[in-house]
């Protein structure tokens, strides 16, 4: 069969190839089409719609009645950018994002290094380390709240009993403890994510260079700092990017722990309050768009810096 195909003139062969291309085209779209349609419906259109709504003075009833036909205005942006609560929430969000990103990556990295060499029970320990990440956020948030309760929480009971505190500390209800506590919680919850990435990357690392460094008389610290860490840079860069994006708009953790009180009102919680509290959809949308822009600028700057650093 194939020999007869090969002896056909060049033109016939080309049409045969385009026919198979056309077939792949049709099969390809039948395979990705439904997914693209759903993603368009639940992600792409909502994003575009947020953008339009942010230019309209729209409450929920206006949108239900008029759809997109509400008059256009810049008021939402002016109101958002001139309110002091907005800038404060951005500042809190930035502090929260930077601290938890650095904290969870550092902790995950140290944990992966500490568990690099095989030891008895390593498999179980590795599986256990992922628990904070896979467990439902609602459950872990309430356990933390119970443990940190000023009256009967075990942490405060220990502090009073063994550390000589006068009374329990309201970890989630008082500044500046509240912000520090949600940051610690977030690091606890997301270090496993960094941990599994580092563990996978360390497994793939060739030990030849390290052994050569040992022969040359490098100390363990030098080995860690000059041999292993540079090879981990791509993972660190990727994780920083992922964690920054995910944390910047994080809602549930803070909402569940403090509800945004005591200096922990991050941007996402603020958007939620605008949406449900005052059902001011226009303001919530403008707030979301500005957040997306700030995040995009932050990511752009981050990528530029890492590119320059890897070039030099």
């Amino acid at each position: 069969m194939t020999t007869t195909v090969d002896t056909r003139p060049a033109g016939a062969r080309r049409s045969r190839r385009t026919e198979s291309e056309r077939r792949d085209n049709r099969a390809g779209w039948s395979m990705v089409g439904p997914l693209v349609a759903i993603v368009t419906m639940v992600i792409v259109i909502p994003i575009l719609w947020t953008f339009i709504l942010s230019f309209q003075d729209a409450r929920y009833s206006d949108v239900a009645r008029n759809g997109l036909a509400n008059p256009f205005t810049l008021d939402n942006y002016i109101d958002t950018l001139t309110s002091s609560g907005f800038w404060e929430s951005i500042w809190v969000t930035v502090v929260y994002t930077v601290c938890t990103t650095i904290g969870s990556i550092a902790l995950g990295y140290i944990a992966a290094l500490a568990m690099r060499d095989r030891f008895r029970g390593r498999g179980i320990m590795r599986a256990a380390f992922l628990l904070p990440y896979v467990a439902p956020v609602v459950a872990t948030a309430y356990v933390w709240k119970t443990m940190l309760n000023p009256q009967y929480g075990v942490i405060n009971a220990m502090g009073v009993e063994y550390l000589g505190w006068d009374q329990g500390i309201d970890f989630l209800g008082r500044e500046p403890y509240a912000l520090a506590t949600v940051i610690v919680y977030e690091i606890w919850r997301y270090f496993p994510f960094a941990f599994i990435f580092f563990a996978a990357a360390l497994t793939g690392l060739s030990r030849d260079v390290e052994e050569a460094a040992l022969v040359d008389g490098a100390t363990p610290w030098q080995k860690f700092w000059h041999v292993i860490t540079p090879q981990m840079m791509p993972v660190i860069v990727l994780l920083t990017l992922l964690r920054m994006v995910m944390t910047f708009n994080k809602f549930d953790d803070i909402y569940l722990l403090t509800g945004g009180a005591a200096g922990t009102e991050v941007a996402a919680v603020r958007v939620y309050d605008q949406l449900t509290g005052s059902s001011d959809i226009g303001a919530a949308s403008a707030n979301s768009v500005i957040l997306a822009i700030i995040l995009a600028i932050g990511l752009g700057a981050y990528m530029k810096i890492t590119k320059r650093m890897s070039a030099s």
């Binding site: 291309e21 792949d24 085209n25 099969a27 390809g28 779209w29 990705v32 693209v36 993603v39 639940v42 992600i43 792409v44 259109i45 909502p46 994003i47 719609w49 947020t50 709504l53 929920y60 949108v63 994006v245 995910m246 910047f248 708009n249 809602f251 996402a268 958007v271 939620y272 949406l275 959809i281 919530a284 949308s285 979301s288 768009v289 957040l291 997306a292 995040l295």
Partner: peptide
Amino acid sequence: RFAGSKKIGALFIAVYMFPQIIIAVPVFV
């Protein structure tokens, strides 16, 4: 390889980066 296959790959990376709170408003409404 089909028409637009590269663009779809890029679309999915972009979508991966989009946070829930931003799509929450219009999906809800």
